[in-house]
Amino acid sequence: MSGRTITIVGNGDVPQGAAAVIDSADLVIRFNDCRSVGNGGTRTDIVAVCNTGRPALSMLGGGRWKNSGPVRRASEIWSVRTGAKFAAMRADLMKTHPDLDDFCDDYTAGFEAFARATGRRHRVIPVETHERLERDLARFAPAPYVVPSSGLVVIAEILAAFAQPRDDVVLAGFGHIGWEWHPFAAERRYVDALVAEGRLRRLDQSQSSDFSDGA
């Protein structure tokens, strides 16, 4: 008996032709403002959000994000960052990255309230997932970084706590480039190793996908 297809769609370019493949999955996860919708299909079961700092404040402020099509379609909101972990990072970041003064501001309660008010499940990815991921990333010699990308945290959580042995976990829209303080070069090597182990697959060119940007 085959398992589910779980497709994790980053915010990078997904070219024409991928929409039907992505929408045929059993579960589709997108990120933040879901820029992948369009060429990357429309199905959205889970929206994983960066729940600290400016991105979180922007999403919760006003109604644009809350009323967007993908967010309305989603049955779950996942907060990618654990508030306590980021609170513990604040003092050191103020010394090393003073420009990130609001990076650790925690808006988890706002996403939880929104989910509750709209009848959705809210889930916070546990700190253990972050810590295990950072240990795994250390094998790939990351350059100095602040945090792994939200996309990588979700991949780690899906593989550790969500996917079943027969499930097919598929990535689209991941190019492992973006914000300078994510360890994207190491993240690419980490994902490539998971693909080589058969734990993940990238939506390949025959299925009209591409990976030119990170989540």
Rank of each mutant, 00 (worst) to 15 (best):
A19I: 02
W65E: 14
R35S: 14
V21G: 00
T52P: 01
I29D: 06
P55E: 10
D33S: 11
T42M: 09
T52A: 00
S75Y: 09
A74L: 04
T42R: 10
K66N: 06
S68H: 13
A19N: 01
D45V: 06
V37N: 11
N39G: 15
V49A: 10
D23F: 04
D45K: 02
L27V: 05
P55S: 03
I46H: 02
T52M: 04
P55T: 12
L27C: 10
C50V: 12
G69A: 15
I46G: 02
A74R: 02
R43Q: 15
V21L: 00
I22W: 00
V28A: 04
D23I: 06
N51F: 05
R30T: 09
A20L: 02
I46N: 01
A56M: 09
D26T: 06
I29N: 02
S24E: 14
G38C: 06
R35Q: 12
R30G: 09
A19G: 14
G17Q: 08
V21T: 14
W65Q: 10
G69C: 03
C34M: 13
R64C: 07
T44W: 10
C34F: 03
A48W: 03
S68I: 08
V47H: 11
G63D: 15
S58M: 11
A56R: 02
R54L: 09
A48D: 02
T42A: 11
T44L: 04
T52W: 00
K66W: 07
V71P: 08
V47I: 14
A18E: 00
Q16L: 13
N67E: 15
A25I: 13
D23R: 05
G38K: 05
T52K: 07
P70Y: 09
T44K: 05
S68L: 14
G40L: 04
R73T: 13
A25C: 11
D26W: 08
V71C: 03
A25R: 12
R64M: 12
D45P: 04
G62A: 09
G62L: 10
A74F: 01
D26L: 05
V37F: 07
I46T: 08
V49F: 03
P55K: 07
S58N: 13
C34Y: 05
N32D: 13
R30F: 07
M59D: 10
R72N: 13
A20Q: 14
G40T: 00
V28N: 05
D45Q: 03
R64V: 13
R54N: 09
T44C: 15
I29G: 05
N51Y: 03
I22Y: 01
A56S: 14
G62K: 11
A48L: 05
D33K: 05
G61S: 15
G17V: 12
V49D: 04
S75F: 11
P70H: 12
N39R: 07
I46K: 02
M59E: 06
F31N: 01
A25T: 15
N32W: 08
G62V: 08
I22E: 04
L60I: 08
I46Y: 01
R64P: 02
N32F: 08
V37A: 13
R54K: 10
V49T: 03
R54W: 07
V37Q: 13
G41Q: 10
N67A: 13
V47A: 04
R35D: 10
Q16A: 14
V21E: 12
C34D: 01
N39E: 08
R54F: 07
D45H: 09
I46A: 02
G61D: 14
G38L: 06
M59R: 04
R30M: 08
